[in-house]
């Protein structure tokens, strides 16, 4: 399957990535060849097969709802690139 540059741009936007014009072409080609390979999957007969989302035991894991102390802002914000008092600081959202 051939992926167009426009499609790559749309997917990149969904993933919040920015792809420069130089690498767009090579990403299109790589993605097309990878997806071509994935098309193998179309040949498998999966009629009536339930999808497996994982290899874990498929039962619900419950625990008592016991409150624990929160680590607090000093710990939570320790790795923040930018902060203001007890808040994360981000660029302007509403313009």
């Amino acid at each position: 399957m051939k992926i167009s540059e426009q499609e790559v741009e749309n997917i990149a936007h969904l993933a919040r990535l920015e792809i420069d014009d130089q690498s767009k072409q090579s990403i299109c080609e790589q993605l097309s060849s990878i997806l071509d390979y994935m098309d193998k999957l179309a040949h498998v007969d999966v009629t009536g097969v339930k999808p497996a989302s994982g290899a874990a035991f498929m039962h619900n894991v419950l625990r008592e709802d016991v409150p624990h102390p929160a680590p607090g802002p000093d710990v939570t914000l320790a790795n923040a690139p930018q902060k203001d008092a007890d808040y994360y600081l981000v660029p302007r959202v509403v313009t």
């Binding site: 994935m38 999957l41 179309a42 498998v44 999966v46 097969v49 339930k50 999808p51 497996a52 989302s53 290899a55």
Partner: peptide, 15 residues
């Protein structure tokens, strides 16, 4: 459906 759902079904067959 063509990719993730299908791959998950194939995964069930591999298991």
């Amino acid at each position: 459906d063509a990719y993730y759902a299908k791959a998950s079904q194939v995964r069930a067959l591999i298991m």
